[in-house]
Computed example of a mutant assay.
Amino acid sequence: MQVFFVTMTFETGNSAGFLANHMARLFAAGLARRIQPLGLAPAQFMVLLVLWDGDGLTQRDLVERLDVEQATMANTLARMERDGLITRQPSPTDKRARIVRLTDKARALEGDAKAAAQAQNNAALSGLSAAEADQLVDLMRRVVGTMQRRA
Score class of each variant (00 low, 15 high):
residue 1 M to K: 10
residue 1 M to H: 07
residue 3 V to D: 12
residue 4 F to K: 09
residue 4 F to G: 00
residue 6 V to G: 05
residue 6 V to I: 09
residue 6 V to P: 00
residue 7 T to H: 12
residue 7 T to R: 09
residue 8 M to Y: 13
residue 9 T to Q: 00
residue 9 T to P: 08
residue 10 F to C: 00
residue 12 T to A: 05
residue 12 T to E: 11
residue 13 G to E: 09
residue 14 N to S: 15
residue 15 S to N: 13
residue 16 A to I: 11
residue 19 L to I: 14
residue 19 L to C: 08
residue 19 L to N: 11
residue 21 N to Y: 11
residue 22 H to L: 11
residue 22 H to N: 09
residue 24 A to P: 02
residue 28 A to N: 12
residue 28 A to L: 11
residue 28 A to S: 11
residue 29 A to K: 12
residue 29 A to G: 07
residue 38 L to V: 04
residue 39 G to V: 02
residue 40 L to M: 05
residue 41 A to G: 00
residue 42 P to V: 09
residue 42 P to L: 14
residue 44 Q to R: 14
residue 44 Q to I: 02
residue 44 Q to T: 05
residue 45 F to G: 01
residue 46 M to S: 11
residue 48 L to T: 01
residue 48 L to K: 02
residue 49 L to V: 04
residue 51 L to H: 01
residue 51 L to S: 05
residue 53 D to V: 07
residue 53 D to N: 14
residue 60 R to Y: 06
residue 60 R to K: 06
residue 61 D to I: 03
residue 62 L to W: 07
residue 64 E to A: 10
residue 65 R to C: 03
residue 72 T to P: 04
residue 73 M to G: 01
residue 73 M to Y: 05
residue 74 A to Y: 15
residue 76 T to N: 13
residue 76 T to R: 10
residue 76 T to W: 10
residue 76 T to Y: 12
residue 77 L to A: 02
residue 77 L to T: 01
residue 80 M to A: 08
residue 80 M to Y: 10
residue 80 M to W: 10
residue 81 E to P: 09
residue 82 R to C: 05
residue 83 D to Y: 07
residue 84 G to P: 14
residue 84 G to S: 10
residue 84 G to M: 08
residue 87 T to M: 10
residue 87 T to A: 07
residue 89 Q to P: 00
residue 89 Q to C: 03
residue 91 S to I: 08
residue 92 P to F: 01
residue 92 P to R: 10
residue 93 T to A: 06
residue 96 R to M: 04
residue 97 A to Q: 13
residue 99 I to Q: 03
residue 100 V to K: 01
residue 100 V to H: 00
residue 103 T to Q: 00
residue 103 T to I: 06
residue 104 D to H: 04
residue 105 K to G: 00
residue 106 A to I: 01
residue 106 A to D: 02
residue 108 A to F: 02
residue 109 L to E: 03
residue 112 D to F: 03
residue 112 D to W: 02
residue 113 A to V: 06
residue 113 A to C: 05
residue 113 A to F: 03
residue 114 K to W: 05
residue 115 A to D: 08
residue 116 A to Y: 00
residue 117 A to L: 12
residue 118 Q to L: 08
residue 118 Q to N: 09
residue 119 A to W: 12
residue 120 Q to P: 04
residue 120 Q to C: 09
residue 121 N to V: 11
residue 122 N to L: 13
residue 122 N to H: 14
residue 122 N to M: 07
residue 123 A to G: 01
residue 123 A to Y: 13
residue 123 A to W: 14
residue 124 A to K: 02
residue 126 S to N: 06
residue 126 S to I: 00
residue 126 S to V: 02
residue 127 G to H: 03
residue 128 L to E: 03
residue 129 S to Q: 01
residue 130 A to I: 08
residue 131 A to S: 12
residue 134 D to E: 09
residue 135 Q to K: 08
residue 138 D to T: 15
residue 140 M to F: 13
residue 140 M to L: 13
residue 140 M to T: 15
residue 141 R to P: 03
residue 142 R to N: 10
residue 142 R to H: 13
residue 143 V to I: 15
residue 144 V to A: 15
residue 147 M to S: 13
residue 147 M to R: 15
residue 149 R to V: 05
residue 150 R to G: 15
residue 151 A to L: 11
